[in-house]
């Protein structure tokens, strides 16, 4: 199964420019159904309301950071299977491992390319498809 182009994606980053870049890249890839939040505290209630198929989040944000958001998502019965892609400047091995243990589905370090974003999204949904 490949990703559904109509799926609803939430983009979480404290920098509006980065949200705009990701949103534009997603649009280039055919994903037009996106929403934005500037940190975990804003994102979590939006996610809880339902309707989102995919979460792309930064790590280091004021308020609730991306890792805490990820842990909250995994702890929520309705959200625990939501695919989460982390796009962050945090590049220490122990942090990548920490994110993996918290249940992230993909990890991209900034600065990144359009090709990397496409590759990771495709990979995430391929794996979800093959897992049934």
């Amino acid at each position: 199964m490949s990703s559904d182009k109509n799926m609803k994606i939430l983009i979480v980053d404290d920098f509006s420019t980065m949200r705009r870049i990701i949103k534009n890249l997603l649009r280039d890839l055919g994903y037009n159904n996106t929403a934005e939040a500037d940190d975990g505290n804003t994102a979590l209630p939006m996610l809880k309301k339902g309707g989102f198929d995919f979460l792309i989040t930064d790590w280091n944000m004021p308020g609730m950071d991306g890792l805490t958001l990820l842990k909250n998502v995994r702890a929520e019965e309705d959200l625990k299977d939501l695919p989460v892609l982390m796009v962050t400047a945090e590049s220490k091995r122990e942090q990548i491992i920490e994110a993996a243990q918290a249940g992230v589905n993909g990890y991209i370090v900034k600065p990144f390319t359009a090709a990397t974003l496409k590759e990771k999204i495709d990979k995430i949904f391929e794996r979800i498809g093959s897992a049934g």
């Binding site: 980065m18 870049i21 400047a89 900034k110 390319t113």
Partner: peptide, 14 residues
Amino acid sequence: TDALMAQDYQDLTG
């Protein structure tokens, strides 16, 4: 797309 991607500096420098 190049011009768009070049804007990622704002996040990193911030």
